[in-house]
C-alpha cells in the first residue's frame, strides 16, 4: 500500500523547548491513522507542520510523493482542536466563504453545502448566525467546512470533544464513510476508545518522540501476553484453583457472567498452545468462558508511556 503522507525525521523547537524530536510517520493511503499521545506530546505541532502553519526546523514532509507546497492546502482538510467560526456571520455565507478560500467555485460550494446540510438535517440553519447556534451545532458546521472541498487528506484534532454521544456517533460514521470514499484520515486524540473503533494505523508520540507506530492489529499482537480469561464451574473451587496454580501463572480476573464461576486470568506456559490449556481445564472443570486477553489501545498507551 502506498503512503499518502510521509514525514521524515521532523524536528521542531520553540526556544529551548523541543516540541518534536526526529519524528517520522508514514500514513498509508486510504487509512485512518491515529496520532496518539498525552497532552503536550507534540501532536498538534506535527499537525501544524503538515498544514504549513509552521515549518519544521529539520526534516521534510511529503504529500503524495511531493514536498509540501502552498498549493497542497487545497488537498488538506483540517479541523483544529481550538475551533471557532466568525460569530456574527451567517452560517451559509460563512461556509461559502471558507469553501471558496479552499479553492471551490461559488456554485460548486453551494451545491455541496446543500448536500451536506440535507444530510446532517440542518438545512434551516443557512440564515442563522453562528452565535445563535449551540456549541455542538457550530461544530457540525465546522465539520462540513472541513470536508467540503473533498480533500485527499483529512486531519481531525480531537474531533469528538464538544459533541454529545449521538452527534459524536454521527460524525464517526461520516469519517468512516469518507475513508470508504477514498480519503485518508489523520486522527489525533488521547481518547482511546475512539481509537479502537476507528484507527487502522497508529503512531504514539510522547515527550516529543515517536515511541511506537504501525498497524493497530500488529501492535496488539506485539503487546499480547498469551493470557486467557477463563470462567470455570466446579463443586470444588479450592482444589481446582490449587491445581491450576501449580501448573500456570495465574492472575485474578473480573468479568460479568451468568454463573458464580471461578474467574481467572491464566498465562500460557512457554511452548504451550491455547489448546493445551483448554484440554487441561476441561479435564478439571466445566469451561464456561475462554477468551484470549487482547491488550486494548488504552493498555498499550498507558504501558508504553509509563515505560518511557
Amino acid at each position: 500500500m502506498s503512503n499518502l503522507l510521509v514525514a521524515n525525521s521532523v524536528s521542531k523547537s520553540f526556544g529551548n523547548f523541543k516540541a518534536l524530536n526526529n519524528v517520522s510517520i508514514s500514513v498509508p493511503t486510504g487509512s485512518i491513522f491515529g496520532l496518539l499521545g498525552p497532552n503536550g506530546a507534540g501532536k498538534t505541532t506535527l499537525i501544524r507542520i503538515i498544514n504549513q502553519i509552521t515549518m519544521p526546523d529539520e526534516g521534510s514532509v511529503m504529500l503524495d510523493g511531493d514536498a509540501l507546497q502552498p498549493h497542497h492546502i487545497q488537498d488538506i482538510g483540517y479541523l483544529p482542536e481550538e475551533r471557532g467560526l466568525y460569530k456574527s456571520m451567517k452560517v451559509g455565507e460563512q461556509a461559502l466563504y471558507l469553501a471558496q478560500l479552499k479553492g471551490l467555485s461559488k456554485s460548486v460550494a453551494k451545491e455541496r453545502l446543500k448536500y451536506w446540510f440535507d444530510k446532517l438535517d440542518i438545512g434551516d440553519w443557512w440564515n442563522k448566525k453562528i452565535q445563535e447556534l449551540s456549541k455542538g451545532q457550530a461544530q457540525k458546521i465546522q465539520f462540513i467546512v472541513t470536508v467540503l472541498h473533498q480533500p485527499k487528506l483529512l486531519i481531525f484534532d480531537e474531533p469528538f470533544s464538544g459533541f454529545d454521544p449521538i452527534n459524536a456517533n454521527l460524525i464517526k460514521d461520516e469519517i468512516l464513510q469518507l475513508r470508504d470514499e477514498g480519503a485518508t484520515v489523520i486522527f489525533s486524540t488521547h481518547r482511546m476508545e475512539s481509537v479502537e473503533e476507528l484507527c487502522d494505523h497508529i503512531a504514539l508520540i510522547h515527550e516529543s518522540n515517536k515511541i511506537l507506530d504501525g498497524k493497530l492489529t500488529d501492535i496488539k499482537r506485539q503487546f499480547k501476553t498469551n493470557t486467557f480469561e477463563v470462567g470455570l464451574q466446579t463443586d470444588n473451587i479450592n482444589e481446582v484453583t490449587r491445581l491450576i496454580k501449580d501448573k500456570f501463572e495465574v492472575f485474578p480476573a473480573t468479568f460479568k457472567n451468568l454463573n458464580d464461576d471461578l474467574k481467572l486470568n491464566i498465562k500460557l506456559n512457554a511452548n504451550d498452545t491455547s489448546n493445551d490449556l483448554l484440554s487441561f481445564l476441561t479435564s478439571k472443570a466445566e469451561v464456561h468462558h475462554f477468551v484470549e486477553v487482547v491488550p486494548s489501545a488504552n493498555d498499550i498507551f498507558i504501558q508504553t508511556v509509563k515505560n518511557n
Binding site: N51, Q52, I53, I73, Y78, E82, R83, Y86, V145
Partner: peptide, 8 residues
Amino acid sequence: IIEVIISS
C-alpha cells in the same frame, strides 16, 4: 477561527 483561516 485562526487555525482554520491560517491553514487556508
